[in-house]
Amino acid sequence: MRKINSIYIIDDDPITVFGIKKILGTVVQCETLATYGNGKLALEAIREHLTNQLAIPDVIFLDINMPIMDGWQFLEEFIGLPINQKVRVNIITSSIDTADVENWEHYRTRSHHLITFNNKPVKKDKLDLITKVA
């Protein structure tokens, strides 16, 4: 089984979080798996890790529609952070709004991180594919 140091799940829907966690348990071995209810909480955690020179997540599962700070606002802040390593950010959404696809294109080309766009539901095969260190 693949080993990954740190994975973040940023989503306000407990069922989705439950599902991702459950499938992850069957495809990777993960040392740290953290969950955040919105972008702001996740961003605060990452900033703290950066200041304390702790490990940054290798893979992030990111929802778009969230209170306080949504997925796009999170990405806007995240790509501006001084992170040298390449982080894999998997957007998981039920949106088929073309505006969201355009937004994804926008951030994907502006960042050195690997950003992917995935529609719900995310089945095991798919999750296996996208849960890798970038």
């Binding site: 829907d13 069922i15 989705t16 599902g19 039920s94 949106s95 088929i96 709004d97 719900k120 539901p121």
Partner: peptide, 11 residues
């Protein structure tokens, strides 16, 4: 509508 129904059906 699409987003909400899809997210529920996905769940």
């Amino acid at each position: 509508v699409s987003h909400n129904l899809r997210s529920h059906s996905a769940n």
